[in-house]
């Protein structure tokens, strides 16, 4: 229903940084209503569990274009769209770590 996940990597920096935590909901009701701008957790066949921001949702809601905010982010520009079945959760709370 709810999970806490630790963020690694910097592709969503400066908003989400290495060591931050996010609380995600896995409730299907919320996952069925993912929209552009939401931050989601999904499983990628090569990269494993990832966190990215949704840029675009397909017409039927079955696929998402995901992006990072960093120029060198590995995201849909590299691996294409993410099917809805791969989505594990939607971020509902971002717990930031100490910033320098």
């Amino acid at each position: 229903m709810f999970r806490i996940i630790k963020v690694t990597g910097e592709s969503l920096s400066p908003t989400y940084q290495e060591g931050d935590y996010v609380v995600v909901t896995t409730i299907p009701f919320f996952l069925a209503r993912i929209k552009a701008g939401d931050v989601i957790i999904f499983n990628h066949v090569s990269y494993g569990k990832m966190i990215k921001k949704v840029s675009t949702v397909s017409a039927g809601g079955g696929e998402f274009v995901v992006v990072g905010s960093h120029e060198n982010s590995v995201d849909s520009r590299n691996f294409g769209t993410i099917p809805a079945e791969s989505v594990e959760g939607k971020v509902i709370w971002h717990i930031t770590g100490p910033r320098q």
Partner: peptide, 21 residues
């Protein structure tokens, strides 16, 4: 954050990669 971090050390939360080379 410190509370969650302490819990993480005890439980070990899953990690999600904001992958960037």
């Amino acid at each position: 954050y410190k509370l969650i971090q302490a819990l993480d050390k005890m439980i070990g939360f899953d990690q999600a990669d904001a992958h960037c080379d």
